[in-house]
Design a protein around this nucleic acid. Structure first.
Lengths: 93, 93
DNA sequence: TTATCTTTAGACAATATTTGTCAAGTCAAT
DNA sequence: ATTGACTTGACAAATATTGTCTAAAGATAA
């Protein structure tokens, strides 16, 4: 899964921006942005606010997606993922 | 939070084992085991099955705790943690 | 108190993982 | 066939994590 990257590509295309244009604004390499959108790399946490302001979308939305990607990285291929999620939801409440 | 380490210490003490005894069986350094129990280090994923067999507790229980610790590492200090957890629970269902 | 045993702390080393870069590649449209 | 947009793969650089060693702290008994 790649929630953030998928959403970024969607937003970028909606706004008719090229990878290199958005990459330039974010001051990152075009290839890296391509990888982020495709889920080959994760965006740095600090990049998310920049992205949200450039693409004019609520920061919270993107942070949730970024976190979801990170959570997925932890639980992928883990049969007990669901139990762990329940556990932690219960614990942190 | 340190779910796994807390539980390990509990189990080890119940069984009257010293750090160095358990560490020896796990073939890890005593100081490292101390850190794991105290949450200063995370156990390696592959260690969990060994631990469960030595302490004679169901592997699943410890894996859930290990995963919970890892999930916590991702969401700690994140105000949107709860939303991300909900999101991913919904998505992976 | 001192001697001994267990556990912890801290600095550092060793490893592993993640992120970033570059150059070359594909693919579509012209 | 050239150009422009994007992707890929190998590698480098940067970060993060895990492990080790030594000394210190804490407890307890002699």
């Amino acid at each position: 899964m790649n929630y953030l990257g998928t959403r970024l590509r969607e937003l970028r295309e909606e706004q008719g921006l090229l990878l290199r244009q958005l990459a330039a604004q974010l001051e990152i390499d075009t290839a890296l942005l391509s990888k982020i959108e495709r889920g080959d790399r994760r965006a740095q946490r600090e990049l998310v606010p920049n992205i949200s302001s450039i693409l004019k979308v609520k920061e919270d939305e993107l942070i949730v997606l970024w976190l979801a990607d990170k959570l997925e990285d932890v639980i992928e291929n883990e049969p007990l993922a669901d139990k762990a999620l329940d556990f932690i939801k219960k614990e942190t409440k």
